[in-house]
Structure formats: structure tokens, C-alpha cells
Design a protein around this nucleic acid. Structure first.
Length: 410
RNA sequence: GGGCAGGUACCGAAGCGGUCAAACGGGGCAGACUGUAAAUCUGCUGGCGGAACGCCUUCGGAGGUUCGAAUCCUCCCCUGCCCA
């Protein structure tokens, strides 16, 4: 085991805050002295099965704990997801059934393993202890917190003062999550800065149950591809860990320049020194932002798919967007062999490039539709199907169409 | 339980008997510009329709009044506030 001070340096890296810092140092020191790994908790919400780069920030931190020999405990909030986490939300989350969340949890763990080490990882479902909780005990727990304290939480307060509904059960969410810390006797809990309140509640309840309170390690929230809001699935500004390399690369290239260094640091896991160097090169104009971004994008894709895939993704990106060539691989759509020609509008709908015929007409009239590279603005154009064609709507939606041979349907 | 204010398209928010598929903003999509972007400018943004102020579906739900309703009436459901 590395000396405590060294560990602290690694673990504090990129963290926004450690609460309380001295306690955390003390825990590390004791861990080294007694040879006991720390139990490090990360709770996750399986109501949304897709993990994205924002989650990876925290997952990577958990991995660092693993690398230092500590015990990672991933809590799958299958039970809490049935409450619906109100964190950072202005609206009540939809409640899922236990069944649904279990299914999500499956893929969730698989995705988390892309970042975590397989060893020193334990996965626990919080329904294990929350399901059994008696009403009497719930009362005891709930009595540990006042309504005023709950309302201190920014999102609750915001909704309250806006006159928006807050379900009573939502107040129970932080408590439930805190009970997880009690159940697994967490030494440290990781989370994004938006989780501060919930994690603090863990300390609170642990103390009540006579346990040594956990320390909090809060990581920054990564902005999404829009560059403004934090990355989240519901805002649609996320890059999923399961996005294929090309898509991941493409999305990364679409982030605003102002985020290059931040992504380098938080998503490509670059060190402080590396990040500073990059920032300097950008500021002094030694490095073109485009190249910097491509470098970062490559690093990130590499992390999930390896250097070869990253290389290919970068090349493909240049090919399609820089040089405006066709993608090397196009999805294909086959029309029945007996069809001679079709209105372009119908083709756009049939291939799924566009959701409705009205939309197809609009896109055509706006000059967004190209057939074999030639813009077509005639909404009534018909396309011969004897030869294969490449149909494009905008830059991103491209399909190759052809007719099936010898009248073979489909 | 009582009183009041609300429920409008993806979101926010106008509309309050016809000219409403519904102003405006955001978001999204597309075009121009670029470094792939971002920013900016422009257009589009329910469906069907070879055109149309044509038809269909939409303004919490169900009925009703009317030639005609998002707009009026009745009942119901949901939300917030105040009182109990």
C-alpha cells in the first residue's frame, strides 16, 4: 500500500471537495497502519440504464480507490429508483417498478465495468435492506431529520417556492440513500457535487446508528455536449459509454472549444499537469483547437475501445466531416425488386431518414436532401430504383438504397 | 371539508366564441458561415395531401350549449396557495 499522504494526493486529484478533509486523511492513515482497505461507496440510479461520460468521472475516481487497494462497493439503487431521485430535478421522477430497475441494473453494471476494475468490486442492491425496513424503523429514521432541513436542499426549496409539487416520498429519498451507507458501513462515499446533501445525510444516519461517519468525496459535474448544462440523459446532451467509437468521437468533436481542457481532465482522465500544458498550448496558439479536441476525443475513445478503434474513428470523422465524403460504411435499405421508381418523399419515410411525409417535404424544400450528392429541392421528385443511390438528409443521416434482385421481396 | 388560482403543442408561456394547428421564447431539425464545432444570420418545427385559408387529430377528462368552442355551461380528475 502506498503511504497515506501519497494516496491522498491521488484521490484528491480532480475532486471538488472532500468533507471533512482531515477525517479523510485520518481514515487513510489508519487504513495504511492496520492494512484494512477502506470501504468506498458509490450509489447509482438504475432508472436510466445508459451510463455516460459524466458518470465516468466518478467511476474513475472509484477505480483509483480500487487501484490503491481499497474496496469498491457499487450500490444499485433498485429500491430507491422506485422512489425516483429528485436530485437536481425540477420535477418528480417517474417511479419504476422493482422489475424494471433490476433489468436496467444488469446493463448498468456491465457498463460500469468498462471503467472499474473487476477485482475489489462488490455490487449490492439496496432493495436487500430497504425492502425489509419496517414502518416503525422508518419513523425512527425520518425523525432524524426535520422538514426545514429537507427544504434546505436547493432543488426541494426551488420547487417548493415555485409552488411545484413535491411528493412526501421524495423526502424519503435522501434517507433511503443514507441507509445504504449504514447498511454497508461505508468509510467514504463518492458522488457528484449535486449529491452533497444526500451524502451528508449518510453521515448523519451513520452517526445515529453508532457508526463512524463516512467521508464525502465530491467530483465535478461534467458539462454535456451543449457546453452549458450538466451531462444528463434527459437533456439529450450526453455521450454514452456504449456509444460506438465513431459516434463517441463525433459527439466529442461537437463540444464547444471552451470545454476541451475540462474534458481532457475529467473524461480522458488527464493529470493536472497535462491539463495545464494543454491549456497553455491552446492559449499560446501552439495548438489549433480542432487538433486539441481531436486529440482529447481520441484519448477518450481509446479508453473505451482501444487505440485502433480510436484511430479509425478519427479517420472516419475526417473523411465524413472534414472532407465531406461519404461514410465508409452506410446502412442499406432494400426495396422490393418489382418497384421501378418511388417518390423521393416515400423513400425518405421508408428508410426512416425522416418520420413523416410532411417532414420529408420540408427537408426537401429546405435543400437538406441530396441524392448521390446532388441536392434535390423538388418535393415531387421520383427516384429510379434500377441503380443503387445514396440518400442523405443533412450531414448525419445517410442511407444507401437499392432494389432487391429478381423480385425478392424485402 | 371550504375558498381561491391553475391544467395549452417537446418545454416554458400567450390566447379566452369564429380570421387557432394555436402568438412569443427555449429546444430540435435544416441552410449559410466555419475548424467538426461554438457564436451569428436564415428557414422549418402535428398528420394526411402533387395545389388549397382542403381534410383529420391536438389545447386535463367526459358530456352539453352553439351554425361554429382551446375559448361558454355541467360534472369529474390533477396541481398550488389560504382556511379548517
Amino acid at each position: 500500500m502506498l503511504p497515506a499522504e501519497e494516496q491522498f494526493r491521488i484521490l484528491a486529484d480532480a475532486a471538488v471537495e472532500i468533507v471533512p478533509e482531515e477525517e479523510f486523511r485520518a481514515k487513510l492513515e489508519r487504513s495504511v497502519r492496520t492494512g484494512t482497505p477502506l470501504r468506498v461507496k458509490l450509489g447509482c440510479d438504475p432508472s436510466r440504464p445508459d451510463l455516460h461520460l459524466g458518470h465516468a468521472v466518478v467511476l474513475h475516481k472509484l477505480r483509483q480507490f480500487q487501484e490503491l487497494g481499497h474496496q469498491a462497493i457499487l450500490i444499485i439503487g433498485d429500491f430507491t429508483a422506485t422512489i425516483g431521485d429528485p436530485s437536481g430535478r425540477s420535477a418528480t421522477r417517474p417511479q419504476l417498478t422493482l422489475e424494471e430497475t433490476r433489468q436496467n441494473a444488469q446493463t448498468y453494471v456491465e457498463q460500469a465495468r468498462k471503467v472499474l476494475l473487476p477485482e475489489r468490486l462488490s455490487v449490492r442492491f439496496n432493495s436487500e435492506w430497504l425492502e425489509e425496513l419496517r414502518f416503525r424503523e422508518l419513523l425512527t429514521i425520518a425523525a432524524q431529520c426535520t422538514v426545514a432541513q429537507m427544504l434546505e436542499r436547493e432543488d426541494f426549496w426551488l420547487r417548493y417556492s415555485r409552488g411545484e409539487p413535491i411528493g412526501l416520498h421524495e423526502f424519503l429519498y435522501p434517507l433511503a440513500q443514507a441507509m445504504d451507507s449504514v447498511a454497508i458501513r461505508a468509510d467514504v462515499e463518492l458522488g457528484g457535487t449535486d449529491q452533497r446533501f444526500n451524502l451528508l445525510m449518510g453521515r448523519h444516519l451513520q452517526r445515529f446508528y453508532g457508526q463512524e461517519p463516512q467521508c464525502l468525496l465530491l467530483m465535478p459535474l461534467l458539462e454535456g455536449t451543449d457546453g452549458v448544462e450538466k451531462m444528463s440523459k434527459s437533456l439529450g446532451n450526453y455521450i454514452a459509454l456504449t456509444d460506438p467509437p465513431n459516434e463517441m468521437f463525433g459527439k466529442l468533436m461537437s463540444i464547444p472549444d471552451s470545454l476541451i481542457v475540462r474534458y481532457y481532465r475529467l473524461a480522458a482522465f488527464a493529470s493536472e499537469a497535462e491539463a495545464q500544458q494543454l491549456e497553455q498550448q491552446l492559449q499560446q496558439g501552439q495548438l489549433h483547437p480542432r487538433d486539441a479536441k481531436a486529440m482529447v476525443a481520441r484519448k477518450i475513445v481509446e479508453w473505451y475501445y482501444g487505440p485502433e478503434a480510436a484511430e479509425r474513428a478519427a479517420e472516419e470523422f475526417d473523411r465524413v466531416f472534414r472532407h465531406r465524403l461519404l461514410p465508409s460504411e452506410l446502412p442499406e435499405h432494400c426495396f422490393p425488386g418489382d418497384v421501378q421508381e418511388l417518390p423521393l418523399v416515400d423513400i425518405l419515410v421508408a428508410t426512416g431518414l425522416v418520420p413523416s411525409r410532411s417532414e420529408a417535404r420540408r427537408q426537401i424544400q429546405q435543400g437538406a436532401v441530396r441524392v448521390d450528392g446532388k441536392p434535390i429541392q423538388d418535393a415531387y421528385a421520383r427516384i429510379e430504383l434500377s441503380d443503387a443511390h445514396v440518400i442523405a438528409v443533412g450531414k448525419r443521416r445517410v442511407v444507401r438504397i437499392r432494389r432487391a434482385n429478381h423480385g425478392t421481396a424485402g
